[in-house]
Amino acid sequence: MTTAARSTVRVAAKEQVADGVVALTLVDPDGARLPDWTPGSHVDLVLPTGDTRQYSLCGDRWDAHAYRVAVLREPAGRGGSAWVHDELAVGDLVGLGGPRNQFRLVPAPSYLFLAGGIGITPLLPMVDAARRLGADWRLVYGGRARASMAFLDELQDPRVTEWPQDERGLLPLADLLTGLDDGTRVYACGPAPLLDAVEAACPPGLLRTERFVAREQGAPVRDEPFTVVLDRTGAEVVVTPEVSVLEAVRAAGADVLSSCRQGTCGTCETTVLAGDPDHRDSVLDEAERAAGDCLLVCVSRSRGDRLVLDL
């Protein structure tokens, strides 16, 4: 199994699911299973334009062979969403990073899900999980207009309240967030003004949010070769885009153990002595990424020309 296959997906379907929203079905080019994920996860899509964008996984995790993401056209954005809407075609290959989860569903007897527009995407798998867990849950889904609200057809349930702004106005947050039981967890995702308002109105400790804006990447993911130096032996090896750091250093004689080869188990963690890692794993948290002192070599790479590893 090559890294290229692991980190590249093929667009198997592209469907308009609401005004300004397309849903993409992504599959492994060889038909293999895709890495496991949990509700709240997102993936990085590395577009041929060189841009990297994060999208929440909003499909069915019981289908191990397909990811679904939904992309809102953002005219004021940096062009990634427009490219997806206008250029990306069924059959195209795109780079994939992750999945990672920074918006985990924690166990609770009851949930209040608050979605604004495209912010419905991470909440869809959460609603499915809450259903399967037998929890009490309620989803209030706001959007500009009914036609702009994706996936309403999948949300036909008495526990779902549709709240198109042109029909009903802004979400009645004060009402929704008053009188909540202490055990309730509130998951909110949507545009920043909505989240600011939810944060202001929600009792402390109950709320979990995900800011639905693409994280700034310090630099584009590198697509040129880079050099890895094995500090203990002094060997140097060039890592081309087709191979993983793991494959390259093993070929250079380093005995690095690995297991999952998808950046989830942590077995291949290697100490970084110098260089600027491009973390593409699901193990490290933000602080650990920022520290830059270790690398999961099965999936992670380098931002710079040169990476020195303690091997």
Binding site: T38, R61, R104, L105, V106, A129, R132, G266, E269, E288
Partner: peptide, 19 residues
């Protein structure tokens, strides 16, 4: 199985992780 498995696994993977 998921989804029941998710939270315990997440917590224990962190508690026993290489970091």
């Amino acid at each position: 199985d998921p989804p029941h498995h998710d939270a315990p696994r997440t917590v224990l993977a962190k508690v026993l992780g290489p970091r």
